[in-house]
Every structure is written in C-alpha cells, then in structure tokens.
C-alpha cells in the first residue's frame, strides 16, 4: 500500500482495492529441449504495483508476448515463478483479463453475448450478466451494437468489445498483447485515449505489450524495454508525464525526452545484437 501512495500522482487513477500486484521472480522461459531449445525469456525479475500502467516495449520476437503469456497463465516459466497478489499463477483465469491483438471475439456470439460470457461463466444469472455487459458496452461506447456479430464491426470496435469483455470480469490485472497493432493510425490514437479514460475509471493494473515507442510512452507509468531474444528487461523507465494525457501530451518536452531515450536504448541494443551476430 505504501508503495502505491509513493507513486500516486495527480490525475493517476485511484486503485481502492489495492489488488493487482504482479511479482515475477527470476523467471526464464525456454521452449523445446536440447539442441532445438529456444530461450524466449532470460531470467527476469519484476514487480508491478497495483494500479500501475506498464508497457513492455521491444522488437518483434523479443519474448515480450511470452512474458505476458506467463502472467496470463498460458505459458509456465521454465525456472522461477510468477504470482499475482501473492498467488502463484497456475493457469489462465478471469482475475487476469486478456486482450489479444485481433480476432479473439467468439464470431458466433453477438457483441452482447461475448461481453456477458465471462460473468455467465462466473455463475451470474442471465439478467445480472446482461446488465454487466450493458454497463461495459456503454463504457466503450458500443451499447447500440450489442445485437451485432463481431464480423459486422470495424477492427477498432471489435477491440473495444474485447476490452469490455475482459473488464466485465472485474479483473485485478488487464493484460494486453499489442491490442492496437492491427489498427490504422487514427483509430489507434483514439483507442489509446479511450483506454486511458477507462483505466482512469477502473484503476486496474495494466500490462501492455507493444513495439511502438510512441504508444508506450504515451500510455505508460513505466516502460520496460526488452532486448532481442533471448528477451530480458534492459531498462525500467519511469514516465512522469502528467495525466490525463491527450494527443497534446506528445508535444511536451518530457514526452520527447522519454521517446528519444527509448529509441536510443533500442538502437544501441540492436546494434549490439547485430555486432554479436557478425562476430
């Protein structure tokens, strides 16, 4: 709790529950065995505080999604441990809401049914689940589209449904795997602002994976920069931009400085990797 207060800044959301602390202790993830073994994540330790917005930034294939999947419970760390609120992660669960890159809504369920699916699985009655679904659809501005099928919506709208669906379980952690990566630039900017507004309401911990430096700096309290495979966190950068952030925030000198810093770190890292390969 004290940690939370320490990092509380004006405009940052209140996380009254104090839930959503993530602890990763010396976790490494290796796929396969022997000669064909692939080290996706090198021994990584990490603490994420309740209510923090953390972006994991790195090039494609650096293991950032694998790290996220370990928190989600899809991948077991080969060594080390991952826990959320002190409980070891064993398998995926509704306490860790997941938003995927694209096409993850159930195509045979309407938008409304997709969002009420989680509450239904948790044992809520049809009416209860329905009212939760309507609340969250309203929150992402899609209440009117409840009876549509996912394929009838644009990519951006589908992702908003995806966010609503994850939030409908009242998760303590929201895990997002390049959720706006497939969207066009304008829609992406709008979605980023929307996400920050929702997060301001909710205050859940967000772990957001991206390879877009601007996106990471704009959204995050902390940007974790990962190296190329085997992935490890090479920098833990605090972003002290005031909130609420808008598109105008990109003009602030802090924003530009943070952005330049991230780019420089990534550039020197990729140069290192390049030299390593050519030895």
């Amino acid at each position: 709790m004290l940690d939370v207060l320490k990092y509380q800044r004006p405009g940052a959301p209140r996380n009254s529950s104090g839930k959503g602390a993530i602890q990763i202790s010396e976790a490494s993830i290796t796929f396969g065995r022997g000669v064909s073994a692939y080290h996706a994540v090198q021994s990584t330790s990490l603490r994420i505080l309740p209510g923090e917005f953390v972006c994991i930034l790195g090039p494609s294939g650096c293991g950032k999604s694998t790290l996220l999947n370990a928190i989600a419970g899809y991948v077991k760390p080969t060594t080390g441990a991952v826990s959320v609120d002190g409980v070891a992660v064993e398998k995926p669960g509704p306490d860790r809401g997941m938003v995927f890159q694209q096409y993850s809504l159930l195509p045979w369920k309407t938008v409304y049914e997709n969002v009420s699916f989680g509450p239904r699985m948790a044992g809520a009655s049809r009416t209860e689940a329905g009212s939760i679904a309507n609340t969250f659809l309203g929150m992402v501005g899609l209440k009117k589209f409840g009876s549509r099928y996912p394929a009838e919506l644009s990519g951006g709208m589908q992702q908003r449904v995806g966010i609503a669906r994850a939030l409908a379980n009242y998760p303590s952690v929201l895990l997002m795997d390049e959720p706006f990566g497939a969207l066009d630039a304008q829609t992406r900017l709008m979605m980023q602002e929307s996400l920050l507004e929702i997060w301001a309401k909710f205050g859940t911990t967000v772990v957001f994976v991206t390879h877009d430096v601007d996106e990471a700096v704009f959204l995050a309290d902390r940007v974790l920069i990962m190296s190329a495979a085997p992935g490890r966190i090479i920098e833990d950068l605090r972003i002290d931009l005031p909130r609420p952030r808008t598109t105008d925030s990109a003009a602030l000198s802090e924003y530009i400085a943070a952005r330049q810093h991230c780019l420089a770190t990534i550039r020197s890292e990729s140069r290192k990797a390049f030299e390593e390969q050519n030895k």
Partner: peptide, 22 residues
C-alpha cells in the same frame, strides 16, 4: 482458432464450457 480457446480460458470457461461455446 487457438486464440478463441485462450480467450475463453481467460474468461473463466471450464473445459466443458470451452467445448460447448468454442
């Protein structure tokens, strides 16, 4: 699609529910 199975898992669906709904 595996992503749909994963999505249902993260929404708290049991194995049986995944069978029926996914």
């Amino acid at each position: 699609p595996e992503v749909l199975v994963r999505a249902a898992q993260s929404l708290g669906a049991s194995r049986l529910a995944i069978f029926a709904h996914v």
